[in-house]
Design a protein around this nucleic acid. Structure first.
Lengths: 191, 191
DNA sequence: TATTTTATTGATTGACGAGTCAATCAAAAT
DNA sequence: ATTTTGATTGACTCGTCAATCAATAAAATA
């Protein structure tokens, strides 16, 4: 069985297993053994490839972040005009592959982790900055207070995620509509 | 030294110590011994009064919830008109004694806890339902879609909390203004 | 005064889990 | 054919921590 070039496959399997395990348990307190078993290997191998639990979890965070970034890129690519681009950025947050039970649940756990782990906090900062930057860029053409609106929309998205994670809800269009309606209300009121 | 009637004092001290310890650590993974020491007693005594760590943490959640409820009550008492009452409810969330570094940080940890602990989840439901109920009640007079606006404001408050917890920011008026401005924008746009 | 109740501690137990390590096996390289 | 390298496991270590349990002391009660 021992073939060559297993590392990338095993790392990927572990990252996915970690997200699923954490998402289902609703907690970071899942054992490396549980994650490894779900990924079809021994706990020792998980340590061999990642060096430790922390680095495995950070890799899982980075993965979610990378998938999300890809969705944003794709969405922006076929969007026209400032408002269309804003919609694309917001919708990317609620794509089916992103706004999914286990992912949002895992994401909330990662948020908690970011409070006590500086590396996790740094990753979260990257996510927030990127989102903010994307929003502000297109808001400039639509409002005199782009920073304030971006702050609100960002916080609102986080809040929707948090509630989705707690209620165990999966993807549903209402979330997207809710945020988009708020955006329009903000643009209409504070133009 | 052993006086009578220590139970309520010790329970209260433990609850406060738990909030501070969790808030400072940014994690629920603080030991009972740490909490007990901060509260000025041995770990054994903490177990004696609370029976276990879980019940102690739940008591801490209930305490935060109770303080918050009190603020809402006080605020509503001296508020006039639907809009004034809405402002009061929202401002209660950002009172100095509520929207404080350690409290928001602990609150985020409790949110995470609610994903894996049904009792904690139940407490969170109570908080969300109360807030929603308060908002909807006064929104009826101001908009045709009170439920939707209440949902948005609720999620926005959660998001602001989450970001405050992560950034380690303490109380500042911008948070309140942000939510209030959004409320007005929503009322103006979707009347 | 004797007894019961409450307060309190420190030591101990027992479980659990992250990380390490030596040993094994198979493919690749020489 | 021999050696080297990567893959893989299971057992073992070590630390941590929640929970338990006498044992003690001081009030309150009888």
């Amino acid at each position: 069985m021992p073939k060559i070039g297993m590392e990338p496959k095993r790392r990927s399997a572990l990252v996915n297993a970690a997200i699923d395990e954490i998402g289902e348990a609703g907690s970071l307190d899942v054992t490396v053994a549980q994650i490894a078993r779900r990924a079809g290997m021994s706990a020792g191998l998980a340590h061999h490839y990642f060096g430790g639990k922390e680095q495995m979890l950070l890799a899982a965070m980075r993965h979610i972040l990378a998938v999300f970034s890809g969705k944003v890129r794709d969405g922006l690519h076929e969007a026209k005009g400032p408002h269309g681009r804003l919609e694309a950025v917001i919708c990317a947050n609620f794509e089916d592959h992103v706004f999914d039970r286990r992912k949002t649940s895992a994401w909330l756990s990662f948020y908690a982790m970011a409070q006590s782990n500086t590396k996790a906090a740094h990753l979260m900062q990257i996510y927030q900055r990127r989102l903010r930057s994307n929003l502000v860029h297109d808001l400039r053409a639509l409002t005199t207070r782009p920073e304030e609106v971006a702050l609100i929309i960002g916080a609102l998205i986080d809040g929707v995620y948090l509630r989705a994670a707690l209620s165990g809800e999966g993807p549903h269009s209402m979330a997207t509509e809710t945020v988009l309606n708020t955006l329009d209300a903000l643009l209409g009121d504070m133009e």
